[in-house]
């Protein structure tokens, strides 16, 4: 069997198609980013997760250290169980505090980690003991208005 010009063109086509796929994977997508390496999985229970979604970033000091891999509802404690997949390069003490925060006023929600002072480090399967729920804007506004109303009515008496 002889090689033909046609084979060259098909080879060129396949190479250029693969290159496009690589471009999408590494330049457009996040395959080149941190999530390709070793990870460990911890979970935490929250009273209210607000608008947190799976695949939301987990940040510490503003740096992305992992992703939210799963969100479930626990029927025993009636709280949300959030599973975090963290990059193995970043180790956190066992008494780390997890908080649900919002980037900007209307931005997406993410999990913020505040390291504690424990000697032992978190490892796969551990549970975060101290958590802080999402701030629900409606509740906050309601409380603010309630306070204002209380303030306004106080001097009148």
């Amino acid at each position: 069997m002889r090689r033909t010009t046609l084979d060259l063109w098909v080879g060129f086509f396949v190479v250029i198609g693969m290159a496009a796929l690589m471009f999408l994977a590494f330049k457009v997508g996040n395959l080149g980013a941190a999530n390709a390496g070793e990870t460990y999985v911890v979970s935490g229970q929250f009273d209210n997760i607000g608008g947190l979604k799976a695949r939301a970033p987990v940040k510490s000091a503003g740096v992305v250290v992992g992703r939210v891999s799963d969100i479930r509802f626990d029927t025993k404690s009636y709280r949300a169980v959030v599973t975090l997949t963290l990059d193995a390069r970043y180790q956190f003490p066992r008494d780390t505090i997890a908080t649900i925060l919002t980037s900007g006023l209307l931005g997406e929600q993410y999990v913020g980690l505040e390291p504690g002072g424990d000697e032992a480090m978190l490892k796969t399967g551990d549970k975060l003991q101290i958590t802080q729920s999402a701030v629900v804007l409606e509740k906050l506004i309601g409380q603010f208005m309630f306070d204002k109303a209380a303030e306004g009515s106080a001097p009148a008496n």
């Binding site: 086509f13 250029i16 198609g17 693969m18 496009a20 796929l21 999408l24 457009v28």
Partner: peptide, 15 residues
């Protein structure tokens, strides 16, 4: 075989 390669190329060119 051609179609996924063409679609990837289309997306890449679009970006």
């Amino acid at each position: 075989i051609s179609m996924p390669l063409l679609a990837a190329l289309f997306s890449a060119m679009g970006v």
